[in-house]
Simulated scan of single mutants.
Amino acid sequence: MLVQILFLMATGGFPAVAADDGFMKVTGPCGLSFPADHGPHPDYRTEWWYYTGNLTGRDGHRFGFQLTFFRRGIQPPADRKGWPDPSSAWRTDQIYLAHAAISDITGGRHPQADRMARPVLSMAGAELADGDVTIHLHGWQATITPQGHRLQADAGDFALALDLTALKPPVPHGEGGYSRKGQSPDRASCYYSFTRLHATGSLTVAGTRHTVQGTAWMDHEFSTAPLQPGIVGWDWFSLQLADHSEVMLFLLRQPDGTLNPASSGTVVLPGGDTRHLTLGDVRVTPLSFWTSPHSGARYPVGWRLRVLPLQLDFTLTASLKDQEMRTPHSTGVVYWEGSVQARGTGHEKTIDGVGYVELTGYAAPFDAPM
């Protein structure tokens, strides 16, 4: 994969400039090309593949799910030239982490798990082979092929096995996938999403297996730059509406409660056309809050969200208040990641929807890389 990344850089596929620590910076439109860009980008420090969705069982039982894989560069690949030859099978310049959870909305439960491993001895990794990408960690796995995505994770007290079929092509955010996260050009990521995936398969919770179907969302993002100083966390929204449009929005919060001007989003129209959203295009107002008995963090769990240029006006409600993630076996970060229901108006008609919301920096300021 590294050879392919260097080729893309040399031919203009990525506008890359060497970072001070040896990793590459994202500085402009990313020239995303698939399937190669579904795979790993080891020249960048931080990367994640992120799946969420809302599912319903045959008996009407409602669920949400999350499965996320993270890759973190410990040292840039160029430093491998200083390794001894032969090198230890345990030596690595990366680490992989994964978070998984099921929101059992009907049952009122939120089982969760997290894992971490070196990408050695087949314990973890991400590979591109013959056009297929596989991201894996201790038996948890996401496989991306031209036909769709396959997710598998067994955490003991819960498990998921899902097949996802893309109903729309991948959507690059920002400017050709170049998603600004601060005022300087290099405080940015390469970021795209599958905004509407049809999901079928099974979830197992507390020993009961449920056959399910519904909709899912996939994000893939990679970067090197840390968050701009003064950003304490973000609120991220993904909505899948009944008129077959989607909305992605991230709000970068500052200590005084204001939002960083780099906050932005994307609307995907039913036919697949997209519209970039700036901070001035949206209004998000918290309507209700929940205090975690686990961490003491106070999270918003209800919102009014308006997209002014498109006259969209929605009320979002958490499907389950306690969807807080605690990750002592991997990142150590406490955050809220949960299913939401949407109801509102657009184009002078009522539109319902489902989605997911991620809230970071409420338990403690979030100063990790993007």
Rank of each mutant, 00 (worst) to 15 (best):
A206K: 04
P309W: 07
L203Y: 02
G280C: 05
P365G: 01
R298P: 03
V267A: 02
A10S: 13
C190M: 13
F237A: 06
G257N: 11
H244Y: 08
H99D: 12
P261M: 05
R115W: 08
R91G: 01
G182V: 06
G176Q: 09
S292T: 08
T215Q: 13
Q228W: 07
G131R: 11
L287Y: 00
S288F: 02
E175F: 00
F63E: 09
R150Y: 14
L277F: 05
D281P: 01
D157Q: 15
A129K: 11
L97V: 02
S238V: 06
T317P: 02
T106F: 04
W234E: 01
L359Q: 14
P86R: 04
H149N: 08
R298E: 12
P300D: 10
L320G: 08
D157F: 03
T92S: 15
R109P: 00
I102R: 10
N260E: 14
R72K: 02
P172C: 08
R45K: 15
G28F: 00
D273C: 03
G257H: 03
M116D: 02
C190H: 13
Q152E: 12
F250C: 04
E324Q: 15
A297S: 06
Q240S: 14
T68H: 04
T315D: 09
T145N: 05
E221I: 00
L359F: 02
L252I: 03
A159N: 09
R275S: 11
T200C: 07
T11L: 01
V232G: 03
Y178F: 03
P369T: 04
R326I: 14
L320H: 08
A124E: 11
P270A: 07
M370W: 09
I102D: 02
R275W: 04
G31C: 01
V284R: 09
G12C: 03
A129M: 13
A10N: 02
T46R: 15
G353K: 02
R71C: 07
A159R: 11
R58D: 09
L6M: 10
S339D: 15
R196T: 07
G272C: 04
M1R: 09
A364C: 01
G201A: 06
R109W: 00
T52N: 13
H110F: 15
V232D: 12
G131T: 10
A101P: 05
G257W: 02
T350D: 14
L316K: 07
N54S: 13
L320Y: 03
M123L: 15
R62L: 07
L162P: 07
H198P: 00
L32V: 04
A188M: 09
T106S: 15
F237E: 13
R115N: 05
Q66K: 04
S184N: 12
L227F: 09
A10E: 13
E127L: 12
R306W: 00
D79S: 12
G233V: 01
G53P: 05
P286W: 08
T278C: 05
W217F: 05
A364Q: 14
L316T: 10
Y51S: 06
H149Y: 06
G346M: 07
Q141P: 03
S87V: 11
V354K: 06
D43H: 12
K181C: 03
A100C: 07
D256K: 10
S245P: 03
D186Y: 12
G353F: 01
G73H: 01
Q341L: 11
E47Y: 06
T134A: 15
T350N: 10
T317R: 14
V282P: 05
R180H: 02
G207S: 06
H138E: 15
Y96F: 14
E221F: 00
V307I: 14
V340Y: 11
T345K: 10
